[in-house]
Design a protein around this nucleic acid. Structure first.
Lengths: 237, 237
DNA sequence: GAGCGCTATCTTCCATGCAAGCTGGCATAT
DNA sequence: ATATGCCAGCTTGCATGGAAGATAGCGCTC
């Protein structure tokens, strides 16, 4: 029979009991920041968030520490939790990290033994097909999703947990910017073509080509995006 | 007059009062892990560490969360804090991250405007001189230090905070391995020559050459190190 | 009216207490 | 002798209270 539960915990899903409150708080705050229900620049108090999540301040505080380590917030010594904004300079930094990591990842995938390599190419091709499909239908969100899946798969097949974590972190940081600029993107066909080029190099096992194709893809995307951000005068997002 | 201090805090440096106990705990544990006074595999209790540092469990717990995020420890739900060991596979992952990030950093430094670029080259040359000097004297620790300074300067001049953080994280993780294998290193002259090559490319502003030189340097180092680790059968360090 | 200082309030920081889970050892039954 | 079940002691998770610091607004003084 259901043993008496601690005290708080009013409504959270009752079926499982696997995640700690800290994990709950971390996930909730991360999601809130992603979809901008916590706007950047917003300064929240731990107490308030704790109240909203139906827990005490401690797990919120510890989740805030993790989020700070992830670069999503800053906890100011005696002022509260500040949701970080993204300046164009941050976007530049993030792109350089992506260019570096994803290039190496593509190289590694292209250097995989035959079986794995071809399987990876298969997956990547599928995602590119989905992109082309969405583009044809004018389905921009669908395009963005397939694009994200392509890049996620590329990293995943490189089988390097640290690279995955790094990419996930910068993706979290730049998620809002991507959503915002999705509608401004121009080079959709170019992007698809570049993806094909990457897949081709991977399938052929040409590591150097894969590296260069991946780098070129991201560098072009950056050169397309940064001017847009600057021209819109977006100081933070 | 000196206001009554909380309670604990018996001996820590009394001159400043800027760092929080969490920061103290974080720094202390990080240092302890670096110099292996916390051996990998060691399982400590937060209570015990708190006692040793003269504080309560809370700051230790929060510091442990940060260290876990950094990949140095794992806090096991009801067992304690586990100091992580480093398997050869981890070294492989770490090297791939370094190859990626440092290559891009070198490229960025070589693309800097003249004044900054030449200043950076100057600094890098100085560090390489120090390496050559230490090598001539047979001063292996000095060589390692100068080598570290070279690579730190390379990243620093790329002016990308996220890259710096990433490199610092993987450096922390692999510090023990570097110390351990320093005595086994062979290609010291090759290393110095490669550094010169990187500096040369940077000074000439040849970004592509700098990227390639930095990559080649790290790839060679990895190919030299990994077999050593495997042959010594070092499963964890 | 303007500037300065004090205080009330809001914030985090840290200590500590309690609850719950896991583990290892001891006692008991077969 | 061996296996099994129980319990005691250890651990962290989380809540909460007190303390210190920062800030904003109000009142006082010039």
């Amino acid at each position: 029979m259901a043993r008496a539960r601690p005290k708080g915990r009013p409504d959270v899903e009752d079926g499982e009991r696997k995640t700690s409150l800290v994990d709950d708080a971390y996930a909730a705050m991360r999601a809130a920041i992603r979809d901008a229900s916590f706007a950047p620049g917003y300064q929240a108090s731990e107490q308030e968030i704790a109240l909203r999540l139906g827990m005490s301040r401690t797990p919120v505080h510890e989740a805030a520490i993790r989020l700070q380590e992830d670069g999503l917030v800053r906890v100011l010594p005696r002022k509260g939790i500040l949701i970080l904004a993204l300046a164009p300079d941050d976007v530049r930094e993030i792109y350089d990290v992506i260019i570096a990591i994803e290039g190496r990842a593509a190289e590694l995938v292209a250097a995989l033994p035959d079986a794995e390599r071809l399987a990876a190419a298969q997956v990547l091709d599928t995602h590119t097909d989905a992109m082309a499909d969405a583009h044809k239908k004018g389905d921009l969100p669908g395009w963005g999703e397939a694009d994200g899946a392509f890049h996620a798969a590329l990293i995943e097949h490189a089988r390097n947990g640290r690279m995955s974590r790094i990419i996930q972190a910068v993706n979290d940081q730049s998620h809002r910017a991507r959503m915002l600029t999705l509608n401004l993107r121009r080079g959709l066909e170019a992007s698809i073509a570049e993806h094909r080029k990457i897949v081709q190099a991977v399938r052929a096992g040409k590591a150097a080509d894969a590296l260069e194709a991946a780098r070129a893809h991201r560098i072009r995307a950056r050169d397309e995006l940064l001017p847009i951000l600057k021209s819109y005068g977006l100081k933070h997002l």
